[in-house]
């Protein structure tokens, strides 16, 4: 598998104005990040607010350009691409945002899904086909002619995903897509995303602060203060309980329970991620 996204020593700084002193202050949101993401993988990026995880996604999508270092998406360097061609990068790496209301542009569902492909100049017949396919993939074809205002949060987010799919991206970046949803909506969206990864082979980069969403990923990246502090499979990352606690990150409840039991002297393996796993491990103790 080839490297699809490559970040090379990326630094991103922005200027902030302190409210009272009128002084300019440089904030470093990303400091020397290097990472590669392979095509077809499911990567979860975890971190607190202000850890730089959203900034990271916007770098890959070329909404932000690195202050130092380089970002390559499908071989294209975002910093060296002229601004009028940046949309070609965005076509490969789509992005779904947190607030479902603020990313729906159309007044009718099908219009919204068509917005992306309209922008890249897809001809009419192909457009209609793409809209149908995209809506089918997220299971929203019944709502094609509805107004987005009447949909639930989870449904709106699925429309937003369909809007990305219609662009046929190789990768979808999701910036806390479930943060504003109820548990039902969250489940809906996550199931859709996992299915896209499995069936369509679309690379997924899911940014979240829900630990549970990281359990099924291929790879988990933990960020803190603009740096990558951990990078590995969910099992590897969640085994490092103490380190996670040091940066005020929690782990899934089951993992925490297993960890506490281990500390009390039970002979359990490290990095238990699901209830089934724990049950099995406990039963095999005798």
């Amino acid at each position: 598998m080839e490297e699809f996204i490559r970040l090379q020593d990326v630094v991103y700084e922005y200027h902030a104005y302190a409210e009272e002193e009128h002084e300019e202050e440089t904030v470093r949101a990303l400091s020397h990040i290097s990472a590669e993401i392979r095509e077809g993988s499911f990567v979860v990026v975890l971190g607190h607010n202000g850890s730089g995880k959203s900034t990271l996604a916007k770098q890959v999508n070329a909404l932000l350009l690195p202050t130092e270092g380089y970002v390559y998406v499908c071989g294209a360097n975002t910093r060296e691409t002229p601004e009028e061609d940046l949309w070609k990068i965005r076509k490969n790496a789509g992005m779904v945002f947190q607030n479902p209301d603020n990313q729906i542009i159309g007044n009718v569902v099908e219009e919204d899904v068509a917005f992306g492909p309209e922008n890249i100049g897809i001809p009419e017949e192909e457009l209609a086909r793409r809209v149908t396919r995209a809506l089918e993939k997220v299971g929203m074809e019944a709502y094609r002619m509805h107004s987005p205002n009447r949909l639930s949060g989870g449904q709106k987010q699925r429309i937003a995903i369909a809007g990305m799919l219609a662009l046929k991206p190789k990768c979808i970046l999701m910036d806390e897509p479930t943060a504003m949803l109820d548990p039902m909506g969250r489940k809906e969206v996550l199931e859709t995303v996992h299915e896209l990864n499995r069936k369509e082979g679309i690379t997924i980069v899911l940014i979240t602060h829900y630990m549970e969403e990281a359990v099924d990923a291929d790879r988990v990246i933990v960020m803190d203060r603009g740096q990558i502090v951990m990078d590995g499979t969910p099992k590897e990352v969640f085994s490092r309980m103490e380190e996670l606690r040091a940066i005020r990150m929690s782990v899934p409840e089951v993992t925490e329970l297993a960890y506490e039991l281990r500390k009390e002297g039970l002979d359990l393996p490290e990095g238990i991620l699901s209830i089934e796993e724990l049950t099995e491990a406990l039963c095999s103790l005798n």
Binding site: L63, R90, M95, F97, N102, F115, E124, L167
Partner: peptide, 26 residues
């Protein structure tokens, strides 16, 4: 705030002005 979010969402979906745009239902 919404306008800012929306502008980003539009850019993320390859919006780059009216040139070369097609329409679903012209």
């Amino acid at each position: 705030r919404r306008a800012n979010d929306l502008a980003q969402a539009m850019e993320a979906r390859c919006y780059h002005g009216g040139n070369g745009r097609t329409k679903l239902h012209p």
